[in-house]
Design a protein around this nucleic acid. Structure first.
Lengths: 138, 138
DNA sequence: TTGTTTCTTGACAAAGTCAGTCGACAATGT
DNA sequence: ACATTGTCGACTGACTTTGTCAAGAAACAA
């Protein structure tokens, strides 16, 4: 029932990039300082995000990272699936990572868990980085 | 974002007891066989459930386990909290296990996670063992 | 060219969690 | 007595989490 710090940091880092979208590259160091993320750990995460196609990076002086796609097109669901795997509370009710499990013995229990999965997926699918930027209240 | 096998097994074991509620003690061995749970592991889990007050046990010949409370009074939320801790996806939005975390930097993100937490908690609080027994469809 | 900045890559590691297993012991019923 | 059944604590192996380290490659500047 848990989100890893990896996912948390990934979301915060992408949010940082989304806020500066279109304004050039952002250094690892700056993100780390602003978001209070361990620097070397953040490097690892950014690299993963880059390989997954969310981030573009440029080396050298004035290098840094920027979003590779529009903030509207990146959902929380995608990010968390990349970092943590299934959104569902158990793989027995996962759409993307299904595996059989002991819970399949109880249809009633499965239904509760499926409801939860559906709500979580829906909420995260329909929240993009753009939705989070600048929304200090709402 | 995950439920442990411990929680899964605990729910299945309690469900097994709920189905036989009022009909005497049920042996570890029988639950293990019916639910396909590793025996020694199940012992551990039942012991924990007993200490938490959900289960009564009797040793010796014709011993076994039975529910210590009515099936209506045991919710999935309670069980999972005992076994796994917080229901919330991150402690920053947990009511019972709150701890500060990096996500608190983004109110918008927090709101999404809080919504998820509320839904999960509500759904699990309002589902009791009694609700799961005998509901083969619904 | 040389140096500086910044990302890239792979290896490593400490700590914790998960999913069990094992063996000895205590209580109960016959 | 004796078989049955739960209780308890220790232990283990695999995996995940949360990072750190060091060497290298690309970009830019002087």
């Amino acid at each position: 029932m848990k989100l890893s710090t990896r996912s948390e940091y990934a979301c915060l880092a992408l949010l940082d990039l989304a806020e500066r979208h279109g304004k050039g590259a952002v250094k690892t160091e700056d993100i780390a300082r602003r978001r209070k993320i361990p620097r070397k750990y953040l490097e690892q995460i950014l690299l993963q995000l880059q390989r997954a196609g969310y981030v573009q990076s440029r080396r050298g002086a004035h290098g840094g990272h920027s979003l590779a796609r529009a903030p509207e097109e990146i959902s929380l669901a995608e990010i968390i699936r990349k970092m943590d795997g299934a959104l569902a509370p158990t793989k027995a009710v996962s759409k993307f990572f299904y595996e059989p499990g002991p819970l399949e013995q109880s249809p009633a229990l499965l239904r509760v868990l499926r409801d939860i999965r559906d709500y979580v997926a829906d909420r995260l699918e329909n929240t993009s980085l753009a939705d989070l930027v600048g929304k200090k209240r709402g």
